[in-house]
């Protein structure tokens, strides 16, 4: 008896396992934490160097659209105005999300309400396929097919916001759709029976109850789609034209924050103004993705059926 009792009271191998497991996860978390902080610190210091070391005016950066950090401008200083890129980035992001959302909602309704079985069987693989296509392939199609089409119809070079929007539309569609599907599925069944039992048609049930209850979720889906569009570099770079000019129409060549980064990052020297200016663009991208995350959090907080 005593022997068993003694054994039970002594720390066993299993109690040590618990501590070891704890330690291992702490080490992993710590490592990732340090990594994230390091990345943030690096991008922030590098990004701010444009303003601190090179004394570029913050207002000029956000309000002017002349971008030639490697050459001296008319006033003897290099010009670092990112407005054109910021405007274009927002334009392609908003346009593609606005264009994709109605299609995404229609597909999500089809998959959850109208024909769940067939919808899941046909549309689910389609969405997964769209997610799986690498962005360089989308860009290639855009370059080879869309740009000549736009050129024939609207004239000019064919590159610009319009083809970028169309390419991004296809790229954010699966994100918005699958998240909308989740949002619609999260609407309790009860609401549907309640609506039908009050004499709603199926369409009224979907439109007035399900979609309304799922609105926060669908908005979140849209924001995630926008975050994806905002951050997409390669495909956009292939169709946007890569001229840092304020867009004058949907088909004038221009550049986004990401496309400027991908095209220029090989051409600058660490520590110089052209390089620092690129880091500032990266910082803007980082801050924007943070903003998107905050918006998602805010929407989640006032989600309809969590009171």
């Amino acid at each position: 008896m005593n022997e068993i009792k003694e054994k039970l009271l002594k720390p066993s191998k299993e109690t040590h396992q618990d501590q070891i497991g704890h330690l291992i996860s702490l080490v992993c978390i710590g490592f990732i934490g340090i990594l994230v902080v390091a990345i943030l610190f690096f991008i922030t210091t590098k990004g701010l160097a444009t303003f601190t070391t090179n004394h570029v005016s913050v207002i000029d950066f956000f309000a002017k659209s002349d971008w030639s950090p490697s050459q001296k401008g008319p006033n003897g200083k290099p010009e670092v105005g990112a407005l054109a890129m910021i405007v274009t980035s927002f334009a392609v992001t908003l346009l593609s999300a606005i264009l994709a959302t109605p299609f995404a909602i229609a597909m999500a309704l089809f998959m959850t309400e109208i024909a769940p079985k067939r919808g899941q069987k046909i549309l689910q693989p389609v969405i997964e396929l769209l997610v799986g296509i690498p962005s360089v392939v989308y860009g290639f199609i855009g370059l080879m097919v869309l740009i000549p089409m736009v050129r024939t119809v609207f004239g000019g070079t064919g590159s610009g916001i319009l083809p970028a929007t169309i390419v991004l539309f296809v790229m954010v569609l699966p994100t918005i759709t699958s998240m909308s599907v989740d949002a619609l599925k999260a609407v309790p069944r009860d609401y549907r029976s309640a609506a039908l039992s009050l004499g709603a048609t199926r369409w009224q049930m979907m439109y007035k109850v399900v979609l309304r209850a799922a609105t926060p979720g669908i908005l979140t889906a849209m924001i995630f789609g926008m975050a994806r569009a905002f951050g997409e570099a390669l495909a956009v770079q292939m169709v946007i034209g890569n001229a840092v000019l304020m867009p004058t129409s949907l088909t004038s060549p221009t550049a986004t924050l990401t496309s400027q980064l991908t095209t220029q990052m090989g051409n600058t020297i660490m520590g110089t103004l052209p390089n620092n200016a690129l880091w500032t663009l990266a910082l803007v991208l980082l801050v924007m993705s943070l903003v998107f995350n905050v918006i998602v959090k805010l929407i989640g907080k006032r989600s309809a059926f969590k009171k």
Binding site: P188, D190, Y191, S193, A194, A195, L196, S197, L198, G199, A200, T201, V209, R212, A213, A304, F305
Partner: peptide
């Protein structure tokens, strides 16, 4: 749709819309 306007239903779980 018309029938359910004439014969309404209250469910086991209260199910007001959000």
């Amino acid at each position: 749709v018309q029938l359910r306007k004439e014969v309404g239903m209250v469910f086991q779980q209260p199910n007001p819309f959000p």
